[in-house]
Amino acid sequence: MLTLTREVGQQIYIGDDIVLTVVSVSPNGRVRLGIEAPKQVRIDRKEVLERIREENVDSANATPDVTVDAAAWASYGARRANARAKP
């Protein structure tokens, strides 16, 4: 992994069009970063994206049972839709 030392206000280019800025560093070690990037570049917090990935995969793994139980899900869904339609 490439490591660089930067001071507050200093910047790093990643490729031609992504600019990373060190905005501030607090005494307790929190670093604020500014990121300028084209809109199509996805920027996500790693731990958040990884938890969403895991939950998506876990949910998909649990779903084949639903195909088997489609009738139960259909009646449960229909009843809850009716309950919702009532004032």
Partner: peptide
Amino acid sequence: PIGGDGTGIF
């Protein structure tokens, strides 16, 4: 939709 269009919520 499980159960067809407009009948359920799943």
